[in-house]
Design a protein around this nucleic acid. Structure first.
Lengths: 334, 334
DNA sequence: TTGTAGGCGTTATCAT
DNA sequence: ATGATAACGCCTACAA
């Protein structure tokens, strides 16, 4: 069917090994021979079968990346950053979209193992710690955007609790005491870490926790819209809202604009993640920067380095966040 | 090193062929034997090497996707839609990010050929028609978001000229006669098709074309900001602006908000693409919907169907656009 | 500098 | 129902 190394060898009048040496630029080949081989390759439009190469060299130059939603700008940035490093180092990237579905997460992992990926970059908040640990014994894993209590798993994450604390504190500093909180999905660990940060900040400020100020969300825009309606329905409304992620905060802004509710006048609003969009909405969103690009870069760099050095680098990265103050918050003291 | 089919065969006391039959659920295997093999597989944590399978079956279950920028919501949607279909049909997806760089586009194509991808979904506005045609002889191609004058290339696109015409006409209908145009990059065909739509609509309305109303852009947010400054600097400013894509229109909105220029009061604004963001900015952007999700779905569906049927489906899809009227345009007649 | 033999992990084909 | 053998396209190790 397709042109193989044998066809080229025959055409050039040499052995397959000589062709192989030319293809891989490895070992000694007489200049004259090389030229003959190269012209044969060109003439036949020879394309080496990387699958066959992989099989014999036991190296696939392939990394698998599994994320909940590529269209989500947050993960898209991560993927892009990772892809860049892969490309620079000669790796190709397989991508799997899980929709946050545990079964799909598992399936991709198994497929990528079967495809002999050299490693898997995994953003899968729902798989349980132990399962990840077992998996990591079979294939190098980089766990992104969550922590796993096992030293031998490479992980890249951010101190979400601290970030949420900083966000809440910012609102407290502006004089707000009645602060609504929009939470992420129950099953996602980061929902809880962010919640803890919120609760901690309140506690430190000596403000009693009020259950009705917490709205259970799920990280999507639509939920932000509903959250605002919920807060509007309260007898005593909050003066500020801390949203577990930017996407929901944007939902709030969107709905507020529709209802002619002024932000930051009626509600001061803080998000989390600093996605691309957050600086484009009106008002521009005050938020906690989440260095997702750096996470992607770090994840792959850590990984490829550790693959290369054989010396399983037992490193985890805890990246820095920053409060980015824009126009969605205002002081009550003014 | 790793567990092979031979290890399993030995453990179960059968031949490799029997194991293979169990793995692929193909051919006849006695129930008792099957159970023995399955428990051996489980005991050894056997994972079939798909690379080896690919080699012998001459089928890789792999599709390559090449886009200019995965983090751009436009392409991210496309990728996501495509990935979904791939996944449903048992294919895996390799992804390559080109940054619109011709050299990188070419490199990915060659790598994906070498990896024996069964097809390549290509969003590469810069590669020339003839090169694509040659390539398509070697590997099935689906060309997305551009047209190529060759019947045998599967292509999925949209009538950009018509879309731009509709957009411009909308502004004309609102009474605008001095309409600015922000163009896309020179080397991208769709920049020109959209430009033509703009020019055509003006011509039909009997409005003379004015060169100073055309600003040369490049499809990114930052350029929109500059475009607005440019229009502001004109002696006779336009009353409306048609932007070749939403991203640039969002840049205009962003800058207008900063400069306290009211949209749609001072400028009516129309975008193109209807990306996710366009309904989130304030004012919400009037735009031309670009059915990118459908394009992704269509692209892969067309492709896989044609792979399956062997009968190289010579189909191209010209999808429908729609004018989506939001809050960034106003009538001069009010 | 070049070539030969063998094997990577799997399946197709043909026997039994 | 099961197995032996060869082959997929390539490279490693060794020999010439």
């Amino acid at each position: 069917m397709s042109i193989t190394i044998r066809d080229v060898a025959k055409e050039a009048g040499v052995s397959t090994m000589t062709v192989s040496r030319v293809v891989n630029n490895k070992g000694q080949v007489a200049n004259e021979t090389r030229i003959r081989v190269e012209s044969a390759m060109k003439k036949l439009s020879y394309i080496p079968n990387m699958n066959a190469q992989n099989l014999v060299t036991n190296k696939t130059w392939t990394i698998g990346v599994i994320v909940p939603d590529i269209a989500n700008p947050f993960f898209a940035s991560l993927v892009k950053a990772g892809e860049k490093i892969c490309n620079e180092r000669g790796y190709s990237m397989l991508i799997g979209n899980t929709e946050g579905d545990l079964a799909i997460e598992r399936r991709y992992i198994s497929v990528y193992q079967s495809r002999m990926c050299e490693a898997i970059i995994l953003v899968a908040p729902r798989i349980d710690d132990f399962e990840l640990s077992e998996l990591n014994k079979q294939i190098p894993l980089v766990v992104v955007d969550r922590t796993v209590p096992f030293q031998d798993i490479v992980q890249v994450y951010l101190d979400n609790t601290r970030g949420a604390e900083v966000a809440t504190k910012h609102l407290l500093d502006l004089g707000h005491t009645r602060i609504g909180f929009v939470m992420g999905p129950e099953e996602v660990p980061n929902s809880h870490t962010r919640y803890e940060g919120y609760a901690q900040a309140l506690k430190q400020a000596g403000i009693p926790f009020t259950k009705e100020l917490v709205y259970q969300g799920d990280f999507i825009v639509e939920t932000g819209r509903k959250a605002l309606e919920y807060f509007e329905s309260l007898a005593i409304k909050p003066t500020a809202i801390f949203c577990s992620n930017d996407l929901m905060a944007i939902g709030i802004i969107e709905r507020a604009n529709e209802l002619d509710i002024k932000i930051p006048n009626q509600y001061s609003l803080v998000g989390f993640d600093n996605i691309f969009l957050s600086s484009l909405v009106n008002p521009r969103l005050t938020t906690i920067s989440y260095p997702i690009l750096e996470m992607g870069t770090k994840a792959i760099t850590l990984l490829l380095d550790s693959l290369l050095s054989e010396a399983k680098v037992q490193m985890s990265e805890n990246l820095e966040h920053n409060l980015i103050i824009r126009n969605s918050t205002r002081s009550l003291y003014d």
